[in-house]
Amino acid sequence: MLPLPRNSVSPRPFRRPRRAALTVATAALVAAVLSTSDAGLGSVARTDTDTTTVAYSAEATAASETLAAVNAFLATLSSTQQSTVQASRTQSNLSQWSNLPDGLFTRAGLRMDTLTSTQRAAVLAILQAALSDEGYEQVVGITTADGVLHTSTGSDDYGSDHYWIRILGTPSSTGRWTVQYGGHHLAVNITLTGDTMTLAPTLFGVQPATYTLNGVSYEPLAGETDKAFAVVQSLDSTQLAAAVLDTAVTEIILGAGQDGKTLAYEGVQASTFTTAQRTLLLDLVAEWISPLNDEQAASKLESAEANLGSTYFAWSGSTSSDQPIYYRVQSPDFTIEFAHQRNMGGTSHIHAIYRETGNDYGAGD
C-alpha cells in the first residue's frame, strides 16, 4: 500500500503485518502453481514461473498493464471461448455476480477448472496487474479457503478453482470496460476508464475464516476484522452509544443484487473522534482500499483521509474480540459492510462488501 500523502494534516496510520495468512501466502502456496486439484489448492500465488507472463515495468501504468494482460489472455482462447468470456457491458451483465455457492447461482464466463494451465496463468496475470500484492494474496486466500471447504464438506458446490472470469465491454486504453472474477464468497469487479480504475463493487467473503495448510495458519480477512475491533474498543461510552445500531444487523445489506441502492448514514461520526481514534479508523479504511493496485489506491486513500470527519462508523453485536459482529463505514466516497454469518459458523463465515458512492463499476469516472 502506498503511504498517505506527505501533506496530510492528520497522523497517518501504519499497517501492521496481517496474521500469517497474507504475509506468507505467496511463499506457502507457490508450489500449487497451475494445479487444478483441491489438494493442490487450485488458486495460485504470484510467481515468475507462469507459462504466460506480462511484462511489468516502472514506466507502465497499472491500467496499461491490466489491458496488456487481458489481451494476452484473450489471445490464448479459442473463438468459442472468446465468445463465452466476452459480453456487452450492460447493467444486467454487470450485476450477474453473487457470493452464493455454485448450486444456488448461475454464473457466466469461463470457469478456471475448464482452462488450460496457460490460460489459467493468463487470468492470474490480469489479477496481478490490477491488484496490489496484498489484494492478490487476499484473493488467493479466499479461493484457497473454498478448496478447504470442499475438502471438509465433500460438496462440489465449492472448490478453489470454481471461479469465473468474464470481460464486459471492449478492452481499450480509452473506453470503459470491466473484468469480473468471482465465485463463492468472491466477486471482484475491476473497471477501467482510460487510466482510471476501481474495484467497486467488490465482495469479499471467506469460509472457513481461518485455516491451516502445511503448518501455516491463514486468515484472509484478518485485518478487516481486527482493525474494526480496534476502532470500536477505542470508543468512549457516548461514542459507543451512538455507534451501536438500534436494530441488530446480521448480514450485509448492499451485497449481490443490490446495485444502485444506498443506506442512510448511521452510527457515530468521526468528527467526534480523537486523533488516535481517527488513525485507527483510517487504518481500517485503508484495509479496504489497499487491494487495488498502489498507483490507483493512492488518490482514494487521500480522499478518504480528507473526508474522514464526514465518515460514520456503525456497529452491531458484541465489542469483545472474536465475537460475531456487523459493522459499517460510510463516507461521502464509499460504503463498507462486514458481517459474520452467526447462524452459519459463528466467526468462521464472513460476508463483506465495498462500494463507492456513485462510482460502482466506474459510473462516475
Rank of each mutant, 00 (worst) to 15 (best):
T49F: 08
D50A: 10
D50C: 03
D50T: 09
T51K: 07
T51Q: 11
T51G: 07
T51S: 13
T51P: 06
T51W: 08
T52H: 11
T52Y: 14
T52F: 15
T52I: 14
T52M: 10
T52W: 06
T52V: 15
T53W: 01
T53K: 12
T53Q: 13
T53A: 13
T53E: 05
T53N: 11
V54G: 08
V54N: 02
V54R: 02
V54M: 02
V54Q: 02
V54S: 06
A55Q: 13
A55L: 14
Y56G: 05
Y56I: 14
Y56T: 14
Y56Q: 13
S57P: 03
S57I: 10
S57K: 02
A58M: 11
A58V: 13
A58F: 11
A58G: 14
A58C: 10
A58T: 12
E59V: 11
E59K: 10
E59H: 09
E59A: 15
E59W: 09
E59Q: 12
A60W: 07
A60N: 12
A60V: 12
T61W: 08
T61N: 03
T61R: 08
T61E: 05
T61Q: 07
A62S: 13
A62F: 06
A62K: 10
A62V: 15
A63P: 06
A63C: 12
A63Q: 07
S64M: 11
S64A: 09
S64E: 12
S64C: 02
S64I: 06
E65L: 13
E65T: 13
T66Q: 04
T66H: 04
L67E: 11
L67M: 11
L67R: 08
L67P: 04
A68T: 13
A68P: 03
A68I: 06
A68S: 15
A68Y: 02
A68E: 14
A69M: 03
A69D: 05
A69W: 01
A69V: 08
V70D: 08
V70F: 06
V70N: 05
N71E: 15
N71I: 09
N71V: 12
N71Q: 15
N71A: 10
A72S: 15
A72D: 07
A72P: 00
A72H: 05
F73V: 01
F73C: 00
F73A: 00
L74E: 11
L74S: 10
L74T: 09
L74I: 12
L74D: 05
L74G: 07
A75P: 04
A75N: 13
T76S: 01
T76I: 03
T76Q: 04
T76M: 01
T76P: 00
T76N: 00
T76E: 04
L77D: 01
S78W: 01
S78V: 04
S78K: 00
S78M: 02
S78I: 04
S78G: 05
S79W: 01
S79D: 15
S79L: 10
S79N: 13
S79F: 05
S79P: 04
T80Y: 04
T80R: 09
Q81P: 03
Q81C: 05
